[in-house]
Design a protein around this nucleic acid. Sequence first.
DNA 1: CATGAATGAGCTTTCATTCAT
DNA 2: AATGAATGAAAGCTCATTCAT
Lengths: 202, 202, 202, 202
Amino acid sequence: MGYGMQKKEEERAPGRPRDPETEERILEVALRLLSADGYSRMSLDTVAAEAGVSKPTIYRRWSSKADLATAALRTMQVAEPKVDTGSTVGDLVAALENFSRSLLRPNGMSLIGTVLAEEGHTPELLRLFRERIVGPRRAILRGILHRAAARGELREDADVDAAVQMLVGGFYARYLASGRIPAGFAREMVGIVWGGVAQRRR
Amino acid sequence: MGYGMQKKEEERAPGRPRDPETEERILEVALRLLSADGYSRMSLDTVAAEAGVSKPTIYRRWSSKADLATAALRTMQVAEPKVDTGSTVGDLVAALENFSRSLLRPNGMSLIGTVLAEEGHTPELLRLFRERIVGPRRAILRGILHRAAARGELREDADVDAAVQMLVGGFYARYLASGRIPAGFAREMVGIVWGGVAQRRR
Amino acid sequence: MGYGMQKKEEERAPGRPRDPETEERILEVALRLLSADGYSRMSLDTVAAEAGVSKPTIYRRWSSKADLATAALRTMQVAEPKVDTGSTVGDLVAALENFSRSLLRPNGMSLIGTVLAEEGHTPELLRLFRERIVGPRRAILRGILHRAAARGELREDADVDAAVQMLVGGFYARYLASGRIPAGFAREMVGIVWGGVAQRRR
Amino acid sequence: MGYGMQKKEEERAPGRPRDPETEERILEVALRLLSADGYSRMSLDTVAAEAGVSKPTIYRRWSSKADLATAALRTMQVAEPKVDTGSTVGDLVAALENFSRSLLRPNGMSLIGTVLAEEGHTPELLRLFRERIVGPRRAILRGILHRAAARGELREDADVDAAVQMLVGGFYARYLASGRIPAGFAREMVGIVWGGVAQRRR
DNA sequence: CATGAATGAGCTTTCATTCAT
DNA sequence: AATGAATGAAAGCTCATTCAT
């Protein structure tokens, strides 16, 4: 390599480097406002002010409000801990209780509301929400049920997808109906579903 | 004939009487825009224009945009036909299929989205939506299950509320996950729930 | 006509009437700013402030900035007094001196500049300028020359259009070259042109 | 190949030498945008992007947008070919046809428009335009007429300046009036002017 | 020297609401 | 009672310019 003066250029980009925290802060604020106020109420002025930057700093990174909002959504990651209680029913209850907690966080349901409400105007939001949030969450429950199926615990005709949607949807419906999730609700739901999909004991 | 338009003289309220059709028309337009665009995108200018009235005509009747939106919601009535197929399972499936159809209408989910998204700013919307829409719909399913219980078809410990929320919520969850409801989905869900709540066959 | 109570409704429009001066004032300010600053520098904020109205008051009347600017241009009317000095040469000189005065008014040339500069972006401006300003001015000179032709004062092959363009254009060119129009310039030009188009004396 | 690009080592100015091509490229782009969009619409962002440099690279060379624009104008050179057809009339027609061609190039008139429109805000543009473009062009025509005068072809009282302004101005006026220059227009104008300034034939 | 990042002020346009007739 | 006119506040986005590396 000769005199060793040829260094890789990748290490130091030319120009003033971005403050890496800026990006995080903007996205964090954006996600908070998106959840709290909904997409169309969320204003870039407010995002900028609360993130402590100017608006062009935002526009340098994302080309439009929709772009910023989807980027903010993209940062959401379902960080549901793996559950392993030893039994399928226990695993389902544990996973649902995790899920329940995230829904009941402040504005947990507002965000779902906004992506649904915006479907006609900013469908990207719903698309991303599906990919980033809904999909992974469903996958956890589906995984538990598929493992149960592999162990022969399920009836052969059991519809795993319908079961998963019902378990998750029960929370939505309950929230929409009353705003509260009673203690033990997860267990009740799992009880019913399990009665419907598990192999009959002989 | 004087000034303006002479209305029927049968009524004797002082001054020019309000046209009741105007009120209906405004509410109808408001509800349509609320569903299609969401609360914050719905503009009173547009409502006025599409209803063929001026904005003060709206403000004379409702004190604010929020007031108009809630009044519009109040007019919504669940008009699910009574179902009676002879069997509990059949009734549940029929009721759910009605429900499913109303969800899949254009903007069927957007309205739910908007009331959820606005919870932080206009909680009245969610309150009214619960009272007018969610409650009556749930009541139909609850009624079917309670009748089944009265006939001894349910296990004694069956949690009717959880069952209802799951049946309804399954649609929400499925829509949120993929935007599509497969044919036979209602029947799949009812099958599972019924397996979980029905008296075991001996 | 019966009881005479049916009056025509045309006389009094419903609703709050517009202040007729408002419209004039807005257009006047807009035209001044258009001339002084050019189209793209002219801001609706400034127009509104200087006209003493709010921006929506402007937008109620004109749908966009371009619309306002063209409306302002439309109000310009060439009010050149009819000239009749008894001789064709005298009429031409008098008409050109009127013309010269209007060009040398503050921003007289800037407005021409702006409509040319905006041709690529707001071609309507140039179109209107042609129709309202350029056309009528040319017509005056053309009229004088056509009358001369009718009296047999012009050579048969004289190109009236070219003569008119040169007389007018001489001012443009002179302004562009030096910003000043020397006294007697009109007379010089007329002298040359007349020498080129008039019937030769025998 | 080392770091970045190795340039010729013949120059010995300290630090990294400026690339003279960069300068040219920036000015070229600036002039093009100035003509096409006008001064106030021309954005340094766009100039930088199209020239493939960053904005500070521009600001290092010119202190402001106005400075850049005037520098760009300064690079314009009238490159009208010398004409020599053997006759004064022929020379005038040939020179005017050259001139006409440059006016009718895309945005040929827009640039004139922009320097006039900006007279109130950036008078330097008009000053430079006069010096670099208008002056030299006029000089060509003036030269032809002065040579004719020296040969005794002109009347003694002929106003060469007025004749030149009319010949040039005829194009401006014609463009402003209709946007088109008819074929033979130069010859028509020269015919009239020549009739007005040439020595009478005996 | 050149870069990419940052900024304050500005742009056109729209909104919910109130006023004057 | 109903209208058209008016308004202050805000929205999303862009610009000329400067900073930090």
